[in-house]
Amino acid sequence: MVWLFAIATGLIVANLYYAQTLIGPISRATGLEPGAAGLIVTLTQIGYVLGLLFIVPLGDLVENRRLILIALLATAVALLAASVASSAIVFLLAALAIGIGSVAAQVVVPFAAHLSRPETRGKTVGKVMSGLLMGIMLARPVASLVADALSWHAIFVLSAVITAGVALVLRARLPERQPQAGMHYFELLSSMWHLLKTTPILRRRAAYQACMFGAFSVFWTCVSLELTGPYFQISQSGVAIFALVGVTGAIASPIAGHRADQGKSRSTTAIALTLGALAFALPLLIHSNRLIDLGVLVVASIILDMGVSANLVTGQRAIFALPAEIRSRLNGLYMALFFMGGAIGSSLGAWMFAAHDWTGVLCTGLAFPLIALAIFATE
């Protein structure tokens, strides 16, 4: 079941990131201005935030398996709409809908926590989140390779078919989970504000991950533009290989989860945030020839992904230690808050790249983990 959860969450969340390395061809095909190209990623993330706030809490109210099925089938329809979009407004609306439906992954993750034993919950969540992070990281190279071989439209058609397949497999394999009915939907939503006010660990962990995910979005939204630009002159297949190397950063997830189970959350957090800052400091400080600069970017991508994944799992381990009856709402709030950081990062990154080139992007990215470290210093 852990393998099923990991693969399913990875395939679902990948839908949010197929467009990340394709913002160049998509914006050209739909007539989107270069300075606004970041909206392709930003609107998907905004949709995800909306889904986290208004759909994921339903995991504490309605039968989880049915909720997952409906969300995934809606996502498949939105992916098909994106594949045939020829105008910016149609594609952006489809991107918003893809983000909303893909929150099914965040109904699956608390499901895994619910089925696992308390003493191994961090390790289990770490394994599931490894699958989720592999989906995020593999989405970029897969999208680039498919776009190179066929077109950018093809990846959305392929993903629609896969998403519908995942929906049917989960419908068949997941056990029924009917939460105890204790409140109505609007009471559920209003309780989230109360949870946010009265759960300091949630606020702190969300702040750390919002900064880390903002840095992650800045880097991955803009690095394909830099790699395919006049300095590196790399093809979409080359971008795919670059993104594929970054996938190795996902190995940090189960390690971080295991350390959190051992009570080492604080030191793991410090390491993760430092890795995030180092990922942007290295390319800012090291300038040489094109080959060395590319090698530095590869190293930066790996340590950034390691920092983001380690911090994410450490935060979720802390949140899932709280009572089971509020777990879906806590997870929805946690993910929504840090995805807001991601949306800010992707929109800022594209604007900075258009206005101040790659150096501006690196400075912007560095600011995010430095803010997180400043907050961490008050813990």
Rank of each mutant, 00 (worst) to 15 (best):
N331R: 14
I319R: 06
I319S: 02
A318G: 09
D305Q: 07
M335Y: 09
F320H: 13
L294C: 08
M306V: 01
A300T: 04
P323Q: 00
A324M: 06
I302N: 00
S328E: 10
L304T: 00
A310Y: 07
V313K: 08
I319E: 03
R329S: 07
Q316C: 01
G332Q: 04
V298K: 15
F320G: 03
I319V: 07
G295H: 12
V308D: 07
L322G: 13
G332V: 05
L322E: 10
L333M: 10
A310E: 02
R327K: 14
N331S: 15
V313M: 05
S328F: 07
L297R: 03
I302H: 06
S309A: 11
L322H: 07
I303D: 10
M335K: 08
M335Q: 04
L312S: 00
G315D: 00
E325M: 10
V308F: 09
G307S: 00
S309P: 01
M335L: 13
N311K: 05
G307D: 13
A318E: 06
N331Y: 15
A310W: 11
G307W: 12
I302P: 07
G307H: 12
V299M: 06
T314P: 02
G315A: 02
D293F: 10
M306L: 12
R327Q: 12
L330Q: 07
R329F: 05
I319K: 03
V296K: 11
I303F: 10
I303W: 03
M306K: 07
Q316R: 07
R317Y: 14
